[in-house]
Measured scan of single mutants.
Amino acid sequence: MRKLSDELLIESYFKATEMNLNRDFIELIENEIKRRSLGHIISV
């Protein structure tokens, strides 16, 4: 996760939620978004 750019991480989050991927996977992405202080972009 740390090698993904912020932009790609956010894009991955939206794609994963759109495709209804595994909730655990989405939570991993959400946690990384929060760690990077980007939660305001997706309202996490």
Rank of each mutant, 00 (worst) to 15 (best):
N20A: 09
I29G: 00
L38Y: 02
I10P: 00
R35F: 06
V44Q: 15
R35I: 06
H40P: 07
S12G: 08
S43C: 08
S37D: 12
I41P: 04
S5A: 06
I29M: 09
L21A: 14
S5D: 06
I33R: 00
R35T: 04
E30K: 13
S12W: 15
N31D: 10
N22R: 08
G39F: 10
R23P: 13
S43A: 13
H40Q: 07
K15R: 13
T17N: 11
I10V: 07
M19L: 12
E30H: 09
I42M: 04
K15D: 08
I42Y: 01
L28G: 04
L8E: 15
S43Q: 14
R23L: 14
L21Y: 13
L9M: 02
I26M: 07
Y13C: 02
M1V: 15
R23T: 11
N20M: 09
L28H: 04
H40Y: 09
L28W: 05
A16D: 02
A16I: 05
R2H: 13
R36T: 01
N31T: 12
I41D: 04
M19F: 04
L38I: 06
N22M: 09
E30R: 11
Y13K: 01
I10T: 03
N20H: 11
K15L: 14
K34A: 08
A16K: 03
L9T: 00
F25R: 04
S12D: 05
I26P: 00
L28E: 11
S12H: 13
E27K: 13
I26Q: 03
A16W: 07
K34V: 09
F14Y: 13
R35V: 05
R23K: 14
K15V: 12
Y13A: 01
T17S: 09
K3D: 15
I26V: 09
E27R: 11
L28V: 11
I42S: 04
K3W: 07
K34G: 05
S43F: 05
I10L: 12
L21N: 09
S43M: 11
N22I: 07
N31I: 12
I26F: 04
N20I: 05
L4M: 14
I42W: 01
S37P: 02
E7G: 07
E11R: 08
A16M: 06
K3Y: 05
N22P: 15
D6T: 08
G39I: 09
A16C: 05
T17I: 15
D24R: 09
G39W: 14
L28C: 05
L8D: 15
L4A: 04
R35E: 05
E7S: 11
M19W: 03
S43V: 13
G39Q: 11
L9P: 00
E32P: 00
N20W: 06
F25P: 01
D24T: 12
L4V: 06
L21R: 07
E7R: 10
D6P: 03
L8W: 09
S5Y: 03
L8H: 10
E30N: 05
E30Y: 13
K3F: 06
R35M: 05
Y13W: 15
T17R: 13
D6K: 03
I10R: 02
I10Y: 03
L9D: 00
K3Q: 14
L4K: 03
M1H: 05
M1L: 15
I10C: 04
I26Y: 03
I33Q: 00
F25D: 06
N31V: 10
I33E: 00
L38P: 02
L21Q: 09
I41Q: 08
L8Q: 14
F14V: 10
D6Y: 07
V44Y: 06
E32Q: 01
R36D: 00
L21W: 12
S43T: 15
R35Y: 05
M1W: 04
E7N: 08
A16H: 06
L4Y: 08
L38N: 02
I10H: 02
E27H: 10
E30I: 15
L9N: 00
E18Y: 05
E11M: 10
I33S: 00
H40W: 08
E7F: 11
R36I: 01
G39L: 09
I29E: 00
S37L: 11
K34C: 06
K34I: 12
L21H: 09
K15N: 13
E18W: 05
I41Y: 09
T17P: 04
N31A: 14
L9V: 03
R36N: 00
E18D: 11
Y13Q: 01
S5F: 04
G39S: 11
H40D: 08
R36Y: 01
L38F: 03
S5I: 05
F25T: 08
R2V: 09
R36G: 00
E32W: 02
R36A: 00
K3V: 09
S43R: 13
I26W: 04
N22T: 10
L21K: 08
N22K: 07
I41E: 08
V44C: 07
I42L: 08
F14Q: 08
I29R: 00
E18R: 07
L21S: 12
M1D: 02
K15W: 15
E27T: 12
I10S: 02
S5C: 05
N31R: 12
I41F: 11
I33C: 03
I29L: 12
K15M: 13
R2I: 09
I26L: 09
N20P: 08
S37H: 14
M1E: 03
M1N: 03
I29Y: 07
E18Q: 10
L4P: 01
G39N: 10
K34M: 12
R35A: 09
N31K: 13
S12T: 15
I33G: 00
E7P: 06
E18M: 07
E32G: 01
I29S: 01
M1Q: 03
T17M: 15
D24Q: 12
F25M: 12
L38R: 02
K15H: 15
E7A: 13
R23F: 11
I10D: 01
K34S: 07
F25N: 04
H40A: 09
I42D: 03
Y13N: 00
S12M: 15
L38E: 02
H40F: 09
E18G: 08
T17F: 13
I33K: 00
Y13P: 00
I41H: 09
H40M: 06
V44L: 14
N31C: 07
L8G: 09
R23E: 10
Y13G: 00
N22E: 13
L8T: 11
L21F: 12
F14N: 07
N22L: 08
D6R: 03
K3N: 15
E18V: 05
S12N: 08
I10A: 03
R23N: 12
L9W: 01
D24H: 10
N20S: 07
E11F: 08
I26A: 03
R2Y: 06
L38W: 01
S37A: 11
S37Q: 13
L4Q: 04
D6Q: 03
E27P: 02
M1I: 15
I42P: 03
L8Y: 09
Y13E: 00
I42A: 04
R23V: 12
S5H: 03
H40S: 07
N20D: 12
L28K: 05
I26K: 03
E7M: 12
K34P: 00
L21T: 10
E30S: 10
D24F: 10
R2D: 11
I29C: 04
I33M: 13
Y13V: 01
L4T: 03
D6H: 04
I41K: 10
M19V: 08
N31Y: 08
R36P: 00
E11L: 12
R2G: 11
I26S: 02
E7W: 12
L4N: 02
E32S: 01
Y13R: 01
I26D: 00
L28F: 05
F25C: 09
R2A: 15
E18F: 05
R2T: 14
M1A: 05
L8C: 11
K15Q: 12
V44K: 14
S12A: 15
E30F: 14
I41R: 09
F14I: 13
L28R: 05
K3M: 06
H40T: 06
R36H: 01
E27F: 09
R35N: 07
F25A: 07
I29H: 03
K15C: 14
E27D: 11
F14C: 06
N22G: 13
E18T: 04
N22W: 08
I10G: 02
M1K: 02
M19A: 14
E7C: 06
S43K: 14
V44M: 14
K3A: 10
S12K: 07
M19H: 11
L9G: 01
S43H: 13
L28T: 07
R2N: 09
F25E: 08
G39C: 11
M19T: 09
D24E: 14
L21E: 12
H40V: 06
E11G: 04
N20C: 08
L38G: 02
F25Q: 07
E32M: 02
R2C: 07
M19N: 13
A16Q: 04
R23M: 13
R23G: 11
N31E: 13
F14S: 04
K3E: 15
A16V: 05
H40N: 10
E32L: 02
E18H: 10
S37G: 15
E7Y: 12
S37M: 13
K34N: 12
I26H: 02
M19C: 09
D6F: 05
A16F: 08
G39A: 09
L8V: 11
K34D: 05
E27L: 12
I41T: 07
I42R: 03
S12Y: 15
K34H: 12
F25L: 14
E11I: 09
I42G: 03
E11A: 11
I29K: 00
M1T: 05
R35L: 07
S37I: 05
L9E: 00
